[in-house]
Design a binder for these strands. Structure first.
Length: 424
RNA sequence: GGAGAGGUGGCAGAGUGGUUUAAUGCAGCCGUCUUGAAAACGGCCGUGGCGCAAGUCACCGGGAGUUCGAAUCUCCCCCUCUCCGCCA
């Protein structure tokens, strides 16, 4: 959420960025409501001040007749306050709703463009592998080595669910451990978080009301399943004032993520690339505004360290204005090459959200001394999404017989250096 | 799930309808004193909205109500603690 004051003082910038995002937002309506609100507020407060003063006098008055007159008078004032207050509440409710519809401002460095075709490839790292045979997609490899069971996942739960067994399940866990250890070593505090959050938390993180369609929820209780650990991290300090001297705070957590993926029914149905439930390691940073640009660089560096040590070819992509998410001012995606499927797989998205989420979640910090409280900047980055990393390892390290070589850094975690082809 | 007790500023803790503009203590900040520190003394010390300003309004877990006036009374909800039950 942007502050009203910022919108008021930067109308042209805000409108321009909304256009660059190829979307719409009710800026003019917001300005009108803001003006209405301030007018009503001043009237209501003047009446309240009057009532407070007179009511105090009534309490002290000894003259019964005089009291009667003033009480009657204040009853009328009270009615007028109720009337104006009702109008004020309506205005404030609509203003809040409309403010929720305004996306974050864009960083000036963001490339301009209407959709993902304008995204900028910043860097390609590593050689795309050349195989002396036709590389297989991971669902075929999974069948050869055994352990990837899509049918039973569908039987138990439905489409877009799968099970892993044996070495493949172990491969996923090894990758999680590796990621947590790498980020932990870089100073990120490991966190264990709830996987279900209440409705207020989903609003604070911006998932509601806009993305209700993509969330799973408990039908009877106030629990929503997290679509990403980011939602939990945003709420970690909701409605709090962080004491001076604690920023930056850097966290990492492994959680499952749950997404209905209703929008994309029919897409990416093969294999494990897009499921309703998947594991992810997520990094999150709370920092002072002056630090957030550097923190974004740090998050990108952390995320890309993972494909680097796994020896997986990847590329860094900066999202263009039309593709940057609602909350973010600037976003870098990390994509790993999957030679079997022949496509780049998005395994991480690193975003600087400035104070946009902090304002909505009512998070402030003290900068020390007599300074007023400020909203911290908040950033998030996957580090990384597991299924697609598993796919990348399977497809990049596959051998002609369908077995999978284990990258050297993973061998200790796995206790093996090869997932053999199973004779069937 | 049942019974009971609670929820007030950074912390502790008063306050059951009107000098509460939330007492008091601790912690914190500034100053006096001191070579320095401690002690003592004096002052400051919550968050947010509106306003050029003076100032004003709101907030005592959340919401709704009663009243001229609510931290205080009523109703609903949430959370914490203790005991019981159930369970990993």
């Amino acid at each position: 959420m942007l502050s009203l004051q910022y919108i008021r003082e930067n109308v042209e910038r805000v409108k321009r960025d909304v256009l660059l995002r190829n979307t719409t937002a009710p800026i003019d309506r917001i300005l009108q409501l803001d003006e209405d609100r301030r007018g009503l507020l001043q009237q209501v407060e003047a009446l309240r001040a009057k009532r407070n003063t007179v009511s105090k006098a009534i309490g002290q008055s000894k003259d019964a007749a005089d009291r009667e007159i003033r009480v009657a008078e204040m009853r009328l004032v009270g009615d007028e306050i109720d009337r104006l207050d009702g109008r004020l509440k309506k205005v404030e409710t609509e203003l809040q709703e409309k403010l929720y519809e305004v996306p974050n401002i864009l960083d000036p460095n963001v490339p301009k463009g209407p959709d993902e075709t304008s995204n900028r490839v910043v860097e390609v790292v590593g050689e795309l592998p050349h195989f002396p045979f036709a590389p297989r997609p991971h669902w075929e490899i999974g069948e050869i080595v055994g352990g990837l069971d899509i049918e039973r996942g569908a039987k138990m739960s439905g489409s877009r669910f799968y099970t892993l067994r044996g070495a493949l399940a172990r491969l996923q866990r090894a990758l999680i451990q590796l990621m947590l250890n790498e980020h932990g070593r870089a100073g990120f505090t490991e966190a264990y978080l709830p996987y279900m959050l209440n409705e207020a938390s989903l609003y604070a993180a911006g998932q509601l009301p806009k993305f209700r369609d993509n969330l799973y929820r408990d039908a009877e209780e106030d629990y929503f399943f997290i679509p990403t650990a980011e939602v939990a991290f945003v709420n970690l300090y909701r409605d709090e004032i962080i004491p001076a001297g604690e920023l930056p705070m850097r966290f990492v957590a492994h959680t499952p993520c749950f997404r209905r993926e209703k929008m994309s029914a029919g897409r990416d149905v093969r294999g494990i690339k897009r499921g309703h439930q998947f594991e992810k390691v997520e990094m999150f940073v709370y920092c002072e505004p002056e630090q957030s640009a550097a923190e974004l660089d740090l998050l990108v560096a952390q995320a890309r360290s993972i494909p680097a040590i796994l020896g997986l070819p990847y590329r860094l992509v900066e999202l263009c204005s039309g593709d940057v998410g609602f909350n973010a001012t600037r976003t870098f995606d990390l994509e790993i090459w999957a030679p079997g499927q022949g496509e780049w797989l998005e395994v991480s998205s690193a975003s600087n959200c400035l104070d946009f989420q902090a304002r909505r979640a009512n998070i402030r910090y003290r900068s020390g001394g007599a300074q007023p409280t400020r909203n911290p900047h908040m950033l998030n980055a996957s580090g990384l999404a597991l299924p697609r990393t598993v796919i990348a390892v399977m497809e990049n390290y596959q051998r002609e017989d369908g077995s999978i070589a284990i990258p050297e850094v993973l061998q200790a975690y796995m206790g093996m250096d090869l997932i053999p082809a199973v004779t069937r």
